[in-house]
């Protein structure tokens, strides 16, 4: 019957609307459901695999493991890494290629992890930093090997 159908429609309409309101009402009154993290006050703990930026590991003697082989430079899809090498005089009188500057362009990096996978000596790794904003873009071009650092003994 028309009237019965009409009333049924009105009833089911009201029911569906009220059940939605009950849900939002529940969230309004139950503040324990709030998921906001107040960022500068609550610092995030990043996962250990999180890829923030490329860094070069140095030990306490200020030695790194980079031989300047440019495997990472070749692996990088965006020309993020530029390796400048120099000829170093070995104690036995031979000249050997060694790392001079490891230039890293953070502004070009997509954190794809391919350089880290390509590195044969585990010289570079991903750091878990995430606050990268600076006022001047030049600051994003970084020199990864520490000043005065040299190649670790025994790394070929």
């Amino acid at each position: 019957m028309f009237i019965v159908d009409y009333i049924k429609t009105v009833y089911s309409t009201c029911k569906s609307l009220l059940s939605g309101m009950r849900l939002t009402g529940y969230y309004f009154f139950h503040h324990k459901e709030i998921i906001t993290q107040q960022y500068p006050d609550v610092r995030l703990v990043m996962a250990e695999r999180f890829r923030g930026e490329v860094v070069m590991t140095h030990d306490e003697k200020n030695e790194h493991r980079c031989t300047g082989c440019t495997a990472c430079e070749l692996a990088c899809p965006n020309a993020t890494i530029k390796i400048v090498t120099k000829q170093e005089l070995q104690p036995d009188g031979k000249k050997k290629k060694a790392l001079d500057t490891f230039v890293y362009h953070l502004e070009l990096c997509t954190m794809c992890n391919l350089c880290i996978m390509a590195c044969p000596t585990d010289a570079i790794k991903m750091a878990q930093t995430y606050e990268h904003s600076v006022f001047d873009r030049n600051q994003l071009t970084k020199k990864l090997n520490a000043p005065g650092s040299k190649l670790m003994e025994g790394v070929e």
Partner: peptide, 13 residues
């Protein structure tokens, strides 16, 4: 504030 609590946020604070 109402919208924030319904949307499980904190709102202006």
């Amino acid at each position: 504030k109402v919208s924030a609590y319904i949307q499980i946020r904190l709102g202006p604070n």
